[in-house]
């Protein structure tokens, strides 16, 4: 059966590789001091305990509030700004150097500066997430909006489109798949920003869970928290890819 075959190829190798990884972890963990590396089973047990106690839920809620606030603001800034910079050459040329510099700058370097400027609290943490997530979105949006076919802009002009109509009917739909590629990258970066903000600014959420576990030499707790972030990141990326494919269907790649 073809379906059985594809099922086996699809799920069997990753399952085996995951089991092998867990076994290896279990073995290495059992050979090492628990302060350095806890075993797989101990980590899972800790994860379950943290979940049951409700600590994971609270931490996740805090972290996700921070993350999504930052991501949404980053999208709301970067997408319109990107289309605008692509559309108006003067603005683009004028700001290009700054954008390239900021895109290349490791944002973590800016955290002490943000701390001294804005202190502790929710707002500076959001700023950090925005800074981390924004530039890949901005960069991809500019690249996308710049590649809008001049023919389509000509069609819009020929049908007497207003500037707003041009954005609504041509620029934004054309740029959306590119922006979503940026958003997918922005999700990854934003998660880094979230953890960094929770480490270095006022401790909260998953970041705090890691810091506290580490202080208590609770290696299993640290690893459990990291697993949570990993799963979260992978899930968000998958959602991002789904969205990207959905909005890029017109490119004919969907089928």
């Amino acid at each position: 059966m073809a379906t059985g075959e594809s099922w086996r190829i699809r799920y069997l190798p990753p399952a085996i590789s995951l089991i092998a990884g867990a076994a290896l972890w279990q073995w290495v963990g059992s050979q090492t001091s628990a302060a350095f590396l806890s075993t797989f089973s101990a980590t899972v047990a800790r994860l379950v305990a943290l979940t049951v106690s409700g600590e994971v839920v609270t931490a996740l809620a805090e972290s996700m509030t921070l993350f999504f606030t930052g991501l949404v603001i980053a999208i709301l800034i970067a997408v319109p700004l990107g289309v605008m910079l692509a559309r108006f050459r003067v603005l683009r040329v004028a700001s290009e150097t700054y954008i390239m510099m900021l895109y290349a700058t490791p944002m973590a370097a800016l955290i002490p500066f943000i701390l001294s400027l804005m202190g502790f609290g929710f707002t500076p943490k959001v700023v950090v997430v925005v800074l981390f997530a924004m530039f890949p979105i901005l960069y991809n949006t500019i690249e996308g909006a710049r590649s809008v076919k001049p023919e389509l802009i000509e069609v819009a002009r020929s049908y007497r489109s207003s500037e707003w109509g041009l954005w609504r009917d041509v620029l934004i739909p054309y740029t959306l798949p590119f922006a979503l590629t940026g958003i997918r990258q922005g999700i990854g970066r934003g998660l880094v920003g979230m953890i960094a903000a929770e480490f270095y600014l006022s401790a909260s959420g998953i970041g705090r869970l890691i810091t506290v576990s580490e202080r208590d030499f609770d290696t299993a707790g640290v690893l459990a928290s990291i697993i949570i972030i990993s799963i979260l990141g992978a899930a968000l990326m998958a959602v991002g890819r789904r969205l990207e494919n959905h909005f890029a269907a017109w490119r004919g790649l969907g089928r």
């Binding site: 023919e151 020929s158 007497r160 041509v170 739909p173 054309y174 017109w250």
Partner: peptide, 19 residues
């Protein structure tokens, strides 16, 4: 001086919006 109502163009490149 600018595109006028009542005038429509059919383009060699079709100019359809793919989305």
């Amino acid at each position: 001086t600018e595109p006028r109502a009542g005038v429509a163009m059919v383009f060699q490149h079709f100019g359809l919006f793919p989305w």
